[in-house]
Computed example of a mutant assay.
Amino acid sequence: MTRRHLPWILATGAALLLAATRTLDPAHALLLPAALLATWYAWRALDHGDEARWPQPPDQTRDGARHDVSDLGWAAFTRDGRVAARVTRRVHALATHRLAQHGIDLDDPTHHAAAAHLLGDDVLTGIRSRRPPTPRTLHHWLDTLDRLPDHHPPGRPA
């Protein structure tokens, strides 16, 4: 017995079993496995056709390409939708730099009142906190830092 004969043997066995147990009358007991066998052979004979394939993406990445912007965007957020620690550290450094132009040390507790005056208590508390902010909160922080007035030391042109 070869693998090619197996469907025929199974169909014949099913027909005999259906007829012997009187589940179906003999004519239908032969027709049901024959119909299933014909359907199986037709299914196997069908051509799957040609499948359209997407072109392979280029392997090379160019500096400054859209790929880099996408990577930066994905790196900005964690899986739970919060802002990544790497980004919050960068915003903290940016706030430190912007406040230093006004003579305020962000990490010095004695300068807390002056920093809160420029940034607001909520932004100052959030930037100094280690908890990851939401994207909306980060946007608020960046807007606040962007609205800080430029401070030019005396004797330097604006």
Rank of each mutant, 00 (worst) to 15 (best):
residue 129 S to M: 08
residue 98 R to D: 02
residue 158 A to E: 06
residue 156 R to A: 10
residue 40 W to I: 04
residue 9 I to T: 14
residue 113 A to E: 08
residue 71 D to L: 12
residue 13 G to P: 06
residue 111 H to I: 13
residue 110 T to M: 15
residue 21 T to H: 02
residue 95 A to F: 00
residue 1 M to R: 10
residue 154 P to Y: 03
residue 93 A to W: 05
residue 146 D to Q: 09
residue 43 W to T: 05
residue 95 A to L: 00
residue 135 P to V: 13
residue 148 L to N: 02
residue 151 H to W: 11
residue 53 R to W: 05
residue 64 G to I: 02
residue 137 T to S: 04
residue 120 G to S: 04
residue 126 G to T: 09
residue 73 G to H: 12
residue 122 D to P: 05
residue 157 P to M: 13
residue 26 P to Q: 00
residue 111 H to M: 13
residue 34 A to T: 03
residue 74 W to G: 15
residue 111 H to R: 12
residue 140 H to Y: 12
residue 115 A to P: 08
residue 35 A to C: 07
residue 146 D to R: 09
residue 88 T to D: 03
residue 29 A to N: 02
residue 132 P to W: 07
residue 155 G to Y: 07
residue 57 P to Y: 10
residue 10 L to W: 04
residue 98 R to A: 03
residue 36 L to W: 07
residue 101 Q to M: 08
residue 61 T to G: 09
residue 9 I to E: 14
residue 7 P to V: 04
residue 147 R to A: 10
residue 27 A to D: 08
residue 78 T to E: 11
residue 22 R to M: 01
residue 46 L to P: 04
residue 7 P to T: 04
residue 76 A to E: 11
residue 109 P to K: 09
residue 90 R to C: 05
residue 124 L to Q: 03
residue 64 G to W: 03
residue 89 R to C: 15
residue 122 D to I: 09
residue 3 R to Y: 13
residue 112 H to R: 12
residue 146 D to N: 10
residue 57 P to T: 11
residue 42 A to M: 02
residue 84 A to L: 07
residue 88 T to G: 02
residue 115 A to Y: 07
residue 81 G to E: 01
residue 148 L to P: 02
residue 102 H to W: 05
residue 62 R to G: 06
residue 98 R to Y: 04
residue 103 G to V: 02
residue 62 R to H: 07
residue 16 L to N: 05
residue 108 D to K: 01
residue 13 G to Q: 08
residue 87 V to K: 06
residue 105 D to I: 01
residue 55 P to R: 13
residue 126 G to D: 08
residue 66 R to E: 01
residue 53 R to E: 06
residue 9 I to A: 14
residue 7 P to G: 03
residue 76 A to I: 12
residue 24 L to H: 05
residue 122 D to T: 09
residue 133 P to S: 07
residue 102 H to V: 05
residue 117 H to Y: 11
residue 135 P to W: 12
residue 110 T to G: 14
residue 154 P to S: 05
residue 56 Q to N: 15
residue 151 H to C: 12
residue 110 T to R: 14
residue 71 D to F: 11
residue 152 H to E: 12
residue 15 A to K: 04
residue 45 A to T: 06
residue 157 P to W: 13
residue 156 R to P: 08
residue 142 L to K: 10
residue 90 R to P: 01
residue 112 H to S: 13
residue 11 A to S: 09
residue 67 H to N: 10
residue 72 L to G: 09
residue 63 D to Y: 15
residue 114 A to T: 09
residue 151 H to I: 12
residue 86 R to Y: 14
residue 29 A to Y: 00
residue 142 L to E: 10
residue 117 H to F: 12
residue 65 A to D: 06
